[in-house]
Design a protein around this nucleic acid. Structure first.
Lengths: 132, 132
DNA sequence: TCTTGACCCTGTAGCGACTACAGGGTGCAG
DNA sequence: CTGCACCCTGTAGTCGCTACAGGGTCAAGA
C-alpha cells in the first residue's frame, strides 16, 4: 500500500500522534478511511493538509483562523483578500506580543542589572516587585 | 472602617474580582477576614501583596514562580540569589518567546509583501502555507 | 504456536491562568 | 419595600494540546 499509519504521518510531519487525532476531532483534518483493524489509513492529500496546518501553527495562527485559511485555499478562483486580512490580523497580534515581551525584557534586564547580590531586604528585584 | 471590599480592591489594583478570588484559591493571597455578611474585608497588607502579584504577572512570571518570590520576599535576611535565579529564568523565557515571535513576524511580513492581490490559486500566502 | 512488544483505538482528565455563568445572599438609596 | 449594585460559592468553559487508562491489532522471533 501507499497508505500511512498515524505514526508514519506523525514522523513525516513532526506533529505528534495525539495532536493529529486532536486536529481530526476539531475538524481541521478529514476523517481518513480505516483499515480492517480500524487503523487510520492516510494518503498524500492528508499529509499535504497536515503540513499546511503545521506551517500555519508555526506562524501562530489559531485553529479557527486555520480552518478559514483551509476553506479559502480550496476555492482557487476567489480573490485572496480574505487570506490577506487573516495574515494581517496575525501579524498585528504577533507585533502586539513582541511589544509586550520587549517591555518585560527591558524591566527584567534593568532589575537584574541593579542586583547587588546582598540580602532580600535590600534586594532591588524584590523592591521593584513591591512597587519601586 | 478602613477595610476594602473585593470590588474596592479590584478597582485599586486593576485586578478583576474573579481573579482575586482565583489567586486566593491558588494560595497566592491569604484568606482575608469576613464581615458579618460573609464579605471579604481586606486591609493594606492585602493590597500590597496583590500589587506584588500583579507586577510579577505583568513581567510574565508564572503563579508558581510568584509563590516562590513571595516566600523569598518574606525572609528579609536571606541572600537574594534565589530571587536573582528566578528573574534570570524569566528573562530567558521572555527572550525565547521574542525570538520565536520575531521569526514569525519576518515570515508574515515577507508573505504579505509578496501578495499581489489576485486569486487564491496564485496567492503567495497560500502558496507558502502549502509548502513554499 | 505462543508471546513479546510496538503500535493503534476510544474516551476522559489535566495543564495554566483565567473568565463566565448559575443560583443564591447582602446592603443601601429612593 | 423595592430595586439595584454588589457579594457569595461552585462549576464549567476557554485554547491547544498532552497524558493517561483500558483495551485491540499485528508482525517478528523462539
Amino acid at each position: 500500500m501507499s497508505t500511512l499509519s498515524i505514526g508514519d504521518l506523525a514522523r513525516r510531519t513532526g506533529v505528534p500522534v495525539e495532536t493529529i487525532r486532536y486536529y481530526e476531532r476539531m475538524g481541521l483534518l478529514p476523517k481518513p478511511p480505516r483499515t480492517e483493524g480500524n487503523y487510520r489509513a492516510y494518503e498524500a492529500g492528508h499529509e499535504r493538509r497536515l503540513a499546511f496546518v503545521k506551517r500555519s501553527r508555526d506562524l501562530g495562527f489559531g485553529l479557527d483562523a486555520i480552518r478559514a485559511l483551509l476553506d479559502l485555499a480550496d476555492g482557487a478562483d476567489r480573490p485572496c483578500g480574505e487570506v490577506d486580512a487573516l495574515a494581517r490580523d496575525q501579524l498585528a497580534e504577533v507585533e502586539r506580543k513582541i511589544a509586550d515581551l520587549t517591555a518585560m525584557r527591558a524591566e527584567l534586564q534593568d532589575m537584574l542589572g541593579h542586583c547587588r547580590n546582598d540580602t532580600v531586604a535590600d534586594c532591588e528585584i524584590i523592591g521593584r516587585l513591591r512597587g519601586k
